[in-house]
């Protein structure tokens, strides 16, 4: 029983730790896709955030400034994507592909110039994202260890759950959200009602980059202590997948990310103990996602104007 509770604690800890960056990315993806702009550049924006987050945290010694700057770096690439797709009517997939090359290309080059290595210098404990409620639980007892594993987790994790609530509220309970969803469904209708579709979408894509950047910073400031070229390998795409999985709703994306994080947690536990091949275990999240899709989710309704450039006649 003790063992089981211990294991469960570790799985839950890993679930939360792995879900967090995905969730930031997924919330970002929601903003962009729901407003009608396909953003496969999340991956590149996360990479930019991952690098900037650690570097700024390293130089300022303040993880929060680093975290915020990670978001801003993502927002910068979000803005590039917005200029291309929203203002200039570029193909959204092509522009996103460009972002995925530019983001990592630029930051890894910067790393090389700044540190003479593609990896940044590891953060010290005080420079990392702080853990909340650490030391609050008595880790000598089974229950305390469990609580410590689950609740004494990074501040960014608590923050992302709050962010899910906020995004949900913004999407479904505010004027901005109503308009943003309308822009993704019927931009012409919005235009006829005096809503500035270009401005709305521009803002949404920038927000999308900002959130993705936070997600990237999470990876390097919680799961690891430094930025490496392989810090962000596919998390951006998984975040997009979680959004499609969650039918383009923040609460759905939350489920998708948790499923992914849980499978990754399972991987951590199984990988340590059982004799099953590591690589097969690593496959679990992806296989499970496909199975869940087939069995429970099925078709995902894409916002009607998603992917279609909106070009205003003059």
């Amino acid at each position: 029983m003790t063992n089981f509770i211990n294991t469960l604690g570790i799985i839950l800890f890993a679930t939360l730790a792995y879900s967090t960056p995905l969730l930031y990315g997924a919330l970002g993806s929601c903003f962009s896709e729901v407003s009608g702009v396909v953003n496969i550049g999340i991956e590149g924006m996360m990479t930019a955030g991952a690098f900037t987050g650690t570097v700024i945290a390293y130089f300022t010694g303040n993880p929060w400034i680093g975290f915020l700057c990670g978001g801003l770096a993502g927002a910068f690439f979000g803005m590039l994507h917005a200029i291309a797709t929203v203002n200039l009517g570029a193909d959204q997939t092509i522009a996103g592909t460009a972002i995925n090359m530019l983001g990592p290309g630029i930051v890894i080059m910067l790393a090389k110039v700044m540190f003479n290595s593609t990896d940044t210098i590891p953060l010290s404990a005080t420079q990392k994202m702080p853990k909340l409620f650490s030391g609050l639980f008595d880790t000598t007892t089974t229950f305390g260890r469990f609580m410590d594993n689950v609740f004494a987790t990074y501040a960014s994790t608590y923050l992302v759950f709050i962010a899910v609530l906020i995004v949900w509220f913004v999407f479904y309970k505010t004027r901005f959200g109503l308009r943003l969803r309308a822009c993704g469904e019927h931009p012409q209708a919005c235009e006829t009602l005096g809503i500035n579709v270009i401005a709305m979408r521009f803002a949404c894509v920038c927000i999308s980059g900002f959130l993705a950047g936070l997600g990237g910073a999470c990876v390097t400031m919680t799961l690891s202590t430094q930025f490496k070229p392989i810090s962000i390998v596919g998390q951006g795409f998984i975040a997009i997948a979680a959004v499609i999985f969650g039918k383009f709703r923040p609460q759905g994306a939350l489920l998708g990310c948790l499923l992914f994080g849980f499978c990754s947690g399972l991987k951590v536990v199984l990988g340590g103990s059982s004799g099953v091949n590591m690589h097969l275990i690593s496959m679990i999240p992806y296989v499970v996602t496909v199975i869940v899709l087939v069995l429970f989710v099925g078709k995902s309704r894409v916002p009607a104007a998603n992917g279609k450039p909106y070009i205003k006649a003059k």
């Binding site: 009517g89 522009a95 995925n100 090359m101 530019l102 290309g105």
Partner: peptide, 19 residues
């Protein structure tokens, strides 16, 4: 990585050449 920056830029400009 300079190469990735160059290629990324090329793709970016191809994307916006739709104007």
């Amino acid at each position: 990585q300079l190469i990735n920056v160059i290629v990324g830029t090329v793709v970016f400009f191809i994307a916006i050449s739709v104007i």
